[in-house]
Design a protein around this nucleic acid. Structure first.
Lengths: 226, 226
DNA sequence: CGGAATCTTGAGCGGCTTCAAAACCTGTGG
DNA sequence: CCACAGGTTTTGAAGCCGCTCAAGATTCCG
C-alpha cells in the first residue's frame, strides 16, 4: 500500500469527516504523497477514474476543453479540496474534467483499488464523497443559473469575490488573487476582452489593482451592485 | 417504518445496484409508496433535504426559480430516477432544486431518518447515491459546456434528441415527447420564441410534427448537423 | 361557448463577442 | 545592461445572434 503514517491537521477533513482517528490513520496510510510541478496534468477529461486526490499545497485547475479547442475552467481548487471522486465507485466511471496543477504543490493520492478496499472497511468514505459530489453539483447549478440570468458584469463580480474568499490571500493593501484574465474570464463565462475591459474600468474606479497574472481587490464593497 | 414488502423489477436499480435481494427487501420495506397528482410539488429549492425519492410512474420536473421569477428547468425525470439524494447525508444539506410532478404518478419515499439507518446497515446505498450524484454533476457540466460553445439551434437539437431517448415513447409515426415549448426552451437554454421559430422551421422541413404540449420526431437524421 | 393557457409572428435592438493589431510586461541570455 | 522573444493584455470598430416586447392566433378544457 502507501507510505503515509500521519495526516495533516484538517486538510483531509472533507474526506475524513466523522471518521475516528485510528481509522483516519489507516486511510491516510493507504495514500501516497506526491509533489507536482506547475503545469503538470494529473488526469484528463474522459480517462477512467483510477486515482483519488486530496490537495495539500498549491492550486489545481479543473477544466474541460471544448472541441473548438478553447478551455472551459470549471474551478480552481485549493488545499483541502478532494477530486477524482469517481474512483471510489465499484462501477467504473470517467473523469469529467482535466486536473492541472497551477503551482508547484503536493497531493495525497489513492489508487482506485486501495480506496475501494478502504471504503469497504470505512464506508464513511463514500458518504463523504457523496457530500463533496453534491457540492460540486450545487456549484455547477449555481453557475448555470447565473449564466442564464445575470449580466456579464455581475458574473465577473461574482467570480472575483468567490475567488477572493476561496483562493485569495490577504495583503496589507487588499486581497490578492493569482489568476490570469483568461482563466477569470472563463470562470465567469465571459470573453477575455470583456473581462479586460471591466477590470480596467474597476481599476480606474479604485476598486482593484491588477497586473499580469493577478488581481488585488482593494475595495470589494465598491463593486457595482445591480 | 414503511409499508412496502415487494419491490418493482428494476425500477430501483440505480439505488439498489449491487445490493443482495434480501437487503433490497429490507430497504424497500423502509419506504412508503406515495401517489402524486400532476402539478404537485414534492420539495422546493433550499428546503432541508428530508426525503429521498425514487420515481416509479410518471414524470417529475426538476427546476429552479431565478429571482427574476422565471423558471430554469434542470431536467425531466422518469421512472427509475432517484432524487433528493442529499437526504442520505448525516450532515444536513438542502435541496438544490424544486421537484414537481408533471403527471399523475407514483414514488417511493424514505424519510431521512430511515434512509440513514438503512445506510448504516447497507452502505452500498450511499455509494450508489454517489454514482447518481456524479451523473448529475456530469450532466450539468455537459450542459454548461454546450451553453458556452454551441449555438441555440444546436442546443435545441441536443435537448430534443436527449429527451427523445430518455422520455420519448415510440409511436408508429415517430418518437413522441410530451413537453411544452417553454420547458423545452429552458432545457436547451434558449428563449421560448427561438424554440418556437426553430420547431416551426423543422416542421416545415418534415423533421418533426408538433402540437400543443408535445413534439413528435419523425426523422431525427434530418436535423441540422453543424 | 368562454376563458385561460399555449404558441406564433414580426420588428427592433442591444449586450457581448469577434477579430486584428498594437502595446505591454517579464524572464532569459548574450 | 540591454535586447529579444514569449506570453499576456489592451483597444477599437464592426457585427450578429438571439432576446425582448407586444400583439395576435390557436388550442384545449371546463
Amino acid at each position: 500500500m502507501g507510505t503515509n503514517r500521519s495526516y495533516p491537521s484538517d486538510l483531509t477533513e472533507r474526506l475524513l469527516a466523522g471518521v475516528p482517528p485510528d481509522a483516519r490513520d489507516a486511510i491516510v496510510a493507504g495514500s501516497r504523497t506526491r509533489t507536482v510541478r506547475s503545469g503538470e496534468v494529473l488526469f484528463r477529461t474522459g480517462e477512467p477514474a483510477e486515482l483519488l486526490f486530496v490537495l495539500r499545497k498549491g492550486r489545481v485547475q479543473f477544466s474541460r476543453e471544448s472541441r473548438s479547442g478553447h478551455e472551459i475552467v470549471m474551478g480552481i481548487l485549493g488545499p483541502g479540496d478532494v477530486f477524482g471522486i469517481g474512483s471510489i465507485l465499484t462501477q467504473r466511471v470517467h473523469y469529467l474534467g482535466t486536473a492541472q496543477a497551477l503551482d508547484h504543490g503536493e497531493v495525497l493520492v489513492w489508487t482506485r483499488e486501495t480506496i475501494l478496499a478502504l471504503n469497504d472497511r470505512y464506508p464513511q468514505l463514500s458518504e463523504n464523497a457523496l457530500f463533496v459530489a453534491l457540492r460540486y453539483a450545487a456549484e455547477f447549478a449555481d453557475r448555470h443559473e447565473r449564466l442564464v440570468t445575470v449580466t456579464a458584469e455581475q458574473r465577473l463580480v461574482g467570480a472575483l469575490t468567490r475567488l477572493g474568499v476561496r483562493n485569495g490571500v490577504r495583503t496589507p493593501t487588499g486581497i490578492e488573487i493569482r489568476i490570469k484574465n483568461e482563466q477569470l474570464a472563463s470562470l465567469a463565462d465571459v470573453s477575455p476582452f470583456t473581462a479586460s475591459r471591466l477590470l480596467q474600468q474597476w481599476e480606474r474606479d479604485g476598486v482593484l489593482h491588477k497586473g499580469r497574472g493577478f488581481v488585488r481587490i482593494i475595495c470589494p464593497e465598491k463593486f457595482p451592485l445591480d
